[in-house]
């Protein structure tokens, strides 16, 4: 597993794809941070993070599209599957490599928040000692970071599964974009409808929408509350997609 992880991580930076991903992600996050905090004149990062996740629709497929599709196309899959490595090890190695690049991007994007702290500190100095709470709320930021990572982990697992389904990177990317958009659409729909006083069918429909909308579980974290239900949701979703990927390979072996 470690060998596959290392090789996969390395191949992100042997190919331009890793640089493209990080470049686009960092540029987008910097702009977004600027618009939602500095220009909007707000210390709250809730808007920043809830808009940041929109970029995942395009960027996560970039990370996951080649994971398995390329191996199949290049026939190197045969090498991995005839090596003394378990299927689970192979899938996890690749998954964690994508997750590492993703988390690395998120981590580096934290520099965007430095100006907020600097300005907050300056403003506190200029006012009387009663105004201690001026500035960004670290709890909120930590919550959001955890939520972004969990959401990313689930979406990467989904992308991994889709990549294992095809040997064409482009179709893997397109399908992943579609699937993530669908989840986003579901959460928007879910937000629009109101459960109060609705017929039971609408409530049921809404709860289904809620279940598949990975984006809507995000909100509690961004207020600084640690949402265990959401944690379990994201982790089990990731687990489900990875499990399906392993099963897919087992199935394919039987032919």
């Amino acid at each position: 597993m470690k060998a596959i992880y290392k090789k996969e991580l390395r191949s992100y930076f042997v190919n331009p794809i890793g640089y493209i991903y990080l470049g686009v992600f960092l540029a987008f996050s910097a702009f977004l941070c600027c618009y939602t905090t500095l220009i909007a004149g707000s210390y709250s990062t809730a808007n920043y993070y809830s808009n940041l996740i929109l970029s995942f629709i395009v960027l996560i497929p970039l990370l996951t599209m080649r994971l398995f599709a390329e191996e199949r196309k290049m026939k190197t899959e045969q090498l991995l599957l005839t090596s003394p490595v378990s299927l689970t090890g192979m899938v996890l190695g690749k998954y964690f490599a994508a997750l590492t690049v993703f988390a690395g991007g998120i981590l580096v994007s934290c520099v965007n928040l430095i100006p907020l702290y600097v300005i907050g500190a300056a403003e506190r100095n200029g006012t009387s000692s009663q105004m201690r709470q001026i500035g960004p709320v670290s709890g909120e930021i930590f919550g959001s970071l955890i939520a972004v990572l969990l959401l990313g982990a689930a979406l990467i697992a989904l992308g991994t599964l889709i990549s294992a389904l095809t040997e064409n990177q482009l179709s893997a990317a397109v399908v992943t974009v579609g699937a993530i958009s669908l989840m986003l659409g579901a959460s928007l729909l879910g937000r629009m409808s109101d459960a109060d006083g609705q017929p039971i069918l609408a409530v049921a429909f809404r709860s289904i929408l809620d279940w598949i909308s990975v984006f809507s579980r995000f909100s509690l974290f961004s207020t600084g509350i640690f949402d265990y239900a959401a944690l379990i949701y994201y982790v089990s979703l990731s687990f489900l997609f990875l499990f399906l990927t392993v099963r897919l390979y087992e199935r394919r072996r039987i032919g």
């Binding site: 090789k7 045969q78 005839t82 003394p84």
Partner: peptide, 19 residues
């Protein structure tokens, strides 16, 4: 896993990473 450790396999198309 133990059995595969004893085999070196070269498939029809060599499984190489061009990069």
């Amino acid at each position: 896993i133990a059995a595969k450790r004893k085999i070196g396999y070269l498939p029809e198309q060599p499984p190489l990473y061009p990069d």
